[in-house]
């Protein structure tokens, strides 16, 4: 790891309180009326470093907290506990105004191309907005020139810039969404499932576009996805998440050739591949627990065939073995 850390995340927790009426919150416990706070634990103690120039993929199933992680990093929601640093500076405590210089450096691409563009703004207006906000010194002609440049770079005909989003297909909208992220010339992009809403033939186009941008602009990506096939292709490092915790963090090649954590193994075996029968996947027992009542110990123990008493009691920490970091007692104890 010769590169410098770009984003450092320490002990990150995020809980969403469940909004109930005041009467539902009150329960009687031990003869007294107690106000009970229930919350969804979306992130429970995430430690992660994004190195400059890498493409870190975060994979996991729905509800594992990967999108929350993206939103917390982008300061769209404030974490409950923990800190996030951009280079050396803490960004999780900053307000809207203080964040402005960081907004220019970090941008985000969203999942749903049909919801991520304002339906009442033309492509030009959508792209001009970030440019004029972050580069107030530019005059109208310069801004327009840049709009043309960035639309062309994402493969959209600049003569279409006065059209509204509904006139474009899903893939084209996602290109526009990428153009908006690139408009401020960022160095770090968080992509939250950017291709999962697109058709197969379009997915390849958008993925290629993102890889081209990575090469031309020396971008660092945090790529959130549930699709392991894409991870294998796109990522340089992979973080596997389960119920708000990180279970494995490894270089892509290593993770796909020798997955360590039992959950990673199950996940990898479940990808439907061409020319492979479906019977040889690892079956998991039971069900994913709800993030409202997290089990004690390792969050995965209920579905894990290697679970021991210790797994049910004690939460495993992320430990590094060679270049892989795994949070699993069984591996630590040499049982697997």
């Amino acid at each position: 790891m010769s590169a410098a850390p770009l984003i450092t995340i320490n002990g990150l927790y995020k809980e969403f309180p469940i909004h109930k009426g005041i009467l539902d919150q009150l329960t009687i416990a031990g003869g007294r009326v107690v106000k009970k706070h229930e919350s969804v634990k979306a992130l429970s103690g995430v430690e992660l470093t994004v190195w400059k120039g890498e493409s870190l993929c975060v994979v996991g199933e729905s509800g594992c907290g990967k999108s929350t992680l993206a939103r917390v990093i982008m300061s769209l929601i404030k974490p409950t506990r923990g800190e996030i640093r951009y280079e050396q500076e803490r960004i999780d405590t900053k307000g809207v105004g203080e964040l402005l210089p960081y907004r220019k450096k970090m941008q985000m691409i969203f999942q749903n191309p049909y919801a991520s563009l304002n339906p009442r703004m033309t492509v030009r207006q959508t792209l001009q907005e970030p440019m004029t906000l972050h580069n107030p010194e530019l005059n109208v002609a310069e801004v327009n020139e840049r709009v043309v440049e960035v639309t062309r770079s994402v493969g959209i005909d600049p003569s279409w810039s006065d059209r509204y989003p509904h006139e474009f297909s899903g893939g084209q909208r996602q290109r526009i969404s990428i153009a908006r992220a690139l408009a401020v010339d960022p160095e770090f992009i968080v992509a939250d499932e950017p291709i999962s809403a697109l058709d197969v033939s379009i997915q390849a186009q958008v993925l290629n576009l993102m890889m081209d941008a990575r090469e031309q602009r020396a971008l660092t990506y945090l790529f959130i996805t549930h699709d392991l096939a894409v991870v294998e292709h796109f990522g340089s490092r992979v973080a596997v998440m389960y119920l708000g915790t990180l279970c494995e963090l490894a270089p892509t090649k290593k993770l796909f050739s020798s997955p360590q954590h039992p959950y990673t193994q199950a996940l990898l075996s479940a990808i439907p591949r061409l020319n492979q029968s479906s019977s040889d996947y690892i079956r998991l027992r039971g069900e994913v627990p709800t993030p409202v009542n997290l089990p004690d110990g390792c969050v995965f123990h209920g579905r894990c065939i290697h679970a021991s008493d210790r797994c049910r009691r004690e939460n495993p920490a992320l430990k590094t073995y060679a270049d892989t970091a795994v949070a699993c007692h069984a591996i630590e104890e040499g049982r697997i």
């Binding site: 997915q203 096939a229 591949r273 061409l274």
Partner: peptide
């Protein structure tokens, strides 16, 4: 176009 058909 499937990612698995191309080298990472």
């Amino acid at each position: 176009a499937l990612p698995q058909k191309t080298k990472p």
